[in-house]
């Protein structure tokens, strides 16, 4: 099983490319590949509790790790208490550790 890191920068509510990439991540997670999805920039809008992003919840149910850039959260006024279930704040240091992991295939979209 290959480890995958999907860094999503686009708002999946607006961008069909983002929707597609999160779908790829979901399929890989369902196939039991270890998958981390790290939301940055406008993709952070999908992290708010109440945001209507079914693929986010499906990813969690499929066992994927969901993190969101703490700077992007602050920028958008999304406090930790407003995060959707299963979404964790992540730091840029944590993101670098994931990108620098030789076992991980990292993909930016």
């Amino acid at each position: 099983m290959s480890k995958f890191l999907f860094i999503e920068s686009q708002d999946p509510l607006e961008d069909r490319g983002a929707e597609a990439y999160l779908g790829y991540a979901l399929e890989l997670a369902r196939q039991k590949h270890p998958v981390t999805v790290f939301l940055v920039e406008n993709a952070a809008l999908a992290a708010r509790r109440g945001a209507q992003v079914p693929v986010r919840d499906a990813l969690r149910e499929a066992g994927a790790t969901l993190q969101v850039d703490e700077l992007a959260l602050r920028e958008r006024g999304i406090g930790a208490e407003r995060l959707a279930p299963g979404v964790q704040q992540g730091t840029i240091d944590q993101l670098v550790d994931l990108v620098a992991d030789p076992e991980t295939r990292a993909i930016w979209h």
């Binding site: 290959s2 995958f4 597609a20 990439y21 779908g23 790829y24 399929e27 890989l28 196939q31 590949h33 295939r105 993909i107 930016w108 979209h109």
Partner: peptide
């Protein structure tokens, strides 16, 4: 679309 993840698995790297 459902076959795209297989291509990701088979690839050495994925550039978007």
């Amino acid at each position: 679309r459902s076959e795209v993840p297989r291509l990701f698995v088979e690839a050495s790297r994925v550039f978007a």
